[in-house]
Amino acid sequence: NRHQFAPGTFSGVLQCLVCDKTLLGKESLQCSNCNANVHKGCKDAAPACT
């Protein structure tokens, strides 16, 4: 399954699913299917969408 990433819209601090570093809103993407949160630069390394 493929992620459907869109710019993240969340408040607070989240961790990137891929690199475990802190996500800030402006550099984040969120999958509309599984709600995975990743950095824009990490999206290609994200595991399959669940």
Rank of each mutant, 00 (worst) to 15 (best):
28 S>C: 08
29 L>H: 04
33 N>E: 11
9 T>E: 13
12 G>H: 06
49 C>D: 09
49 C>A: 06
19 C>H: 00
7 P>W: 02
26 K>Q: 14
31 C>T: 02
21 K>C: 06
10 F>I: 09
39 H>F: 01
6 A>Y: 11
27 E>G: 02
12 G>W: 02
15 Q>L: 06
27 E>I: 00
39 H>S: 02
35 N>P: 05
40 K>W: 07
46 A>I: 09
5 F>L: 05
12 G>R: 02
3 H>Y: 01
43 K>V: 11
7 P>A: 09
16 C>T: 02
43 K>W: 09
28 S>A: 13
40 K>L: 13
47 P>R: 07
49 C>T: 06
40 K>Q: 13
8 G>S: 12
34 C>Y: 01
22 T>W: 04
16 C>R: 00
1 N>W: 05
15 Q>H: 11
50 T>R: 14
49 C>G: 04
13 V>L: 14
43 K>M: 07
27 E>W: 02
44 D>M: 08
15 Q>Y: 08
3 H>W: 00
47 P>M: 10
32 S>G: 11
21 K>Q: 15
33 N>P: 07
2 R>V: 02
29 L>G: 03
14 L>W: 03
49 C>K: 07
46 A>L: 13
7 P>T: 10
33 N>I: 10
21 K>G: 08
26 K>R: 08
9 T>P: 01
50 T>A: 11
9 T>M: 07
2 R>E: 02
8 G>L: 04
40 K>G: 14
3 H>M: 03
27 E>D: 06
26 K>V: 12
21 K>H: 06
8 G>F: 07
17 L>D: 03
6 A>F: 10
10 F>H: 13
24 L>W: 02
8 G>A: 12
24 L>R: 06
42 C>N: 01
11 S>T: 13
1 N>Q: 00
8 G>M: 06
40 K>P: 15
28 S>F: 07
29 L>T: 09
9 T>Q: 08
36 A>F: 06
45 A>Q: 13
24 L>G: 13
3 H>E: 04
35 N>M: 06
19 C>G: 01
43 K>L: 10
36 A>I: 13
38 V>A: 07
24 L>P: 14
6 A>G: 13
35 N>I: 02
36 A>M: 10
29 L>D: 11
31 C>I: 00
50 T>N: 05
8 G>Y: 06
7 P>G: 04
26 K>M: 10
37 N>D: 06
18 V>L: 04
15 Q>S: 05
12 G>N: 04
40 K>E: 15
45 A>S: 09
4 Q>H: 14
38 V>N: 02
9 T>F: 03
30 Q>T: 10
42 C>T: 02
8 G>T: 06
37 N>H: 08
17 L>W: 07
44 D>K: 08
17 L>F: 09
37 N>E: 06
16 C>P: 02
30 Q>F: 06
18 V>Y: 04
36 A>E: 10
19 C>N: 00
25 G>C: 08
10 F>K: 15
7 P>Q: 08
41 G>K: 05
50 T>Q: 13
19 C>T: 00
16 C>D: 03
29 L>E: 14
